[in-house]
Amino acid sequence: MSAGRTARQVQAERSRVALLEAAAAAFVDAGVQAPVRDIAARARVGVGTVYRHFPTRAELVTAVYRHQVDECAALAEQLLAEQVPPRAALCRWTSAFTDFLVTKHGLSDALSSDDPSLVDLHALIFDTLVPAFASLLEPAQATGEVSEDICALTFLRAIGNLCIVGPGYTDADARAMVGLLLIGSGASSAEHEHEHEHAGR
């Protein structure tokens, strides 16, 4: 009986992972409001299976992004453990976070949404990533490389807003604007500064 339960648990976890992967792909294509039937079709399961694992859309959206958010937080810990210089660490993390946002378009939309069903996602993002970002921002402020007037939460919100792509505003535009934001903060890397010099010629 125990082995049977374990087998069922393994199968349930595989089904859950398949749904999360299908949902992540659907969110990239259609945003976080992608139809459940499309997600089910991508995962090759019935709509009922989706709802058994994730009774509400908010639970599904939060689950899809939790892993990526955890990876972003882990990167901050890694950069600190490796003793990467403060400005370089801040730029590397911001670059990775920007890549995450512009490739997961649905997340940027969710972060800027007033939809009450996404409150849990807001809390997940900010409760996890604000401390991670602050752990890199504060050393850069201590060395005078970044203005002490910058607040971690405000800076992350600004990056999120800059990463909402759409008609006439591409992924490349978003990355360029985040680069300018870093320059304005005093945190631009040597590579960003070099690119900016060439752009001005």
Results as ranks from 00 to 15, higher is better:
1 M>D: 01
3 A>E: 03
7 A>F: 00
7 A>W: 00
15 S>F: 02
18 A>W: 03
20 L>A: 04
20 L>T: 06
22 A>R: 04
23 A>D: 02
28 V>T: 10
30 A>V: 01
32 V>Q: 02
32 V>E: 03
35 P>Y: 01
36 V>P: 00
39 I>P: 02
41 A>V: 01
47 V>T: 12
48 G>F: 06
49 T>Y: 11
51 Y>I: 06
55 P>S: 10
57 R>N: 04
57 R>W: 08
65 Y>T: 03
66 R>Q: 14
68 Q>H: 11
80 L>I: 14
80 L>Q: 15
81 A>C: 12
84 V>C: 10
88 A>W: 04
93 W>M: 13
94 T>F: 11
95 S>Q: 13
98 T>G: 14
101 L>Y: 10
101 L>T: 08
102 V>G: 09
104 K>R: 15
105 H>W: 05
110 A>C: 09
113 S>D: 02
115 D>R: 01
120 D>N: 05
120 D>K: 01
122 H>G: 13
123 A>Q: 04
127 D>P: 01
129 L>G: 07
136 L>K: 05
139 P>R: 02
141 Q>N: 10
157 R>D: 12
166 G>R: 11
167 P>W: 08
168 G>F: 10
173 D>P: 04
174 A>W: 15
179 G>Y: 03
179 G>M: 10
181 L>C: 13
181 L>E: 07
183 I>D: 14
185 S>E: 07
194 H>R: 15
201 R>D: 05
